[in-house]
Simulated assay, not measured.
Amino acid sequence: MLLEILTPEKKLYSGEVYGIQLPGVDGSFEVLDRHAPLIAALGKGKMKVLKDKTQASHYTINGGFVEVLNNKATVLVEGAVAV
């Protein structure tokens, strides 16, 4: 799955990933390869990018939105900091 993480200032990440774990406004959820189309609001919290089954990177985000369509996830956030 292709993942793009965008802030108003810059593109934070772009590349192929195994999946992502996101802090939704009603609780955390996970998006994996070939996920059904989805649009969801994100709250403040930790986002985990699963590069493969053994490697992951972590970000703290300040809320935003995620769109999943055609095996591509676009995460639009107000602000994000790599942890």
Rank of each mutant, 00 (worst) to 15 (best):
L38I: 09
A82R: 15
L50N: 07
D33V: 15
A82Y: 04
T60P: 00
L3A: 06
K10A: 11
L2P: 00
E16R: 13
I39C: 04
K48V: 15
Y18D: 11
M1T: 14
Y18L: 11
I39L: 14
I39A: 13
K72Y: 07
T60L: 11
V81F: 09
K46F: 04
G63S: 05
R34Q: 15
E4A: 14
Y18E: 12
D26G: 07
E9A: 13
L22E: 06
K46E: 15
G24E: 10
M47V: 14
L12K: 10
G79E: 11
H35P: 03
I5G: 03
V75R: 00
A73E: 00
N71G: 09
A41H: 03
E4C: 08
G19E: 05
G19Q: 08
K72P: 00
K46Q: 14
A82F: 06
G27Y: 09
F65S: 12
T54P: 00
V77F: 03
L32Q: 05
M47C: 12
K48I: 15
L12N: 02
L76P: 00
Y59M: 06
G27E: 05
V25H: 00
D52L: 07
K51Y: 08
L6K: 08
Q55V: 10
F65R: 09
V66P: 00
K53C: 00
E16N: 09
G27N: 06
N70R: 13
M1L: 14
A41N: 09
T54D: 12
T60F: 10
I5S: 01
A80P: 04
G63H: 05
D33C: 10
S57H: 07
V68K: 03
G63K: 03
V83R: 12
I39T: 13
E30H: 06
L2C: 02
S14M: 11
V49E: 01
G27I: 10
P23N: 11
E16L: 11
F65Q: 10
E30S: 14
N71S: 13
Q55L: 13
P8E: 00
I20T: 12
V77H: 01
Q21F: 12
L76V: 13
K44H: 08
V77M: 02
G27D: 06
S28D: 15
G45F: 03
L3D: 03
V68F: 04
V31M: 06
A41D: 02
F65D: 00
V66K: 01
T60K: 07
L22T: 06
K46G: 01
E16I: 12
T7H: 07
N71C: 11
K51G: 01
I20A: 14
D26W: 05
K46M: 09
E67G: 02
V25E: 09
F65P: 00
E78V: 08
G45L: 05
E67I: 06
T74F: 04
M1Y: 08
Y13C: 05
I61G: 01
T54A: 10
P37N: 06
G43N: 07
L42H: 01
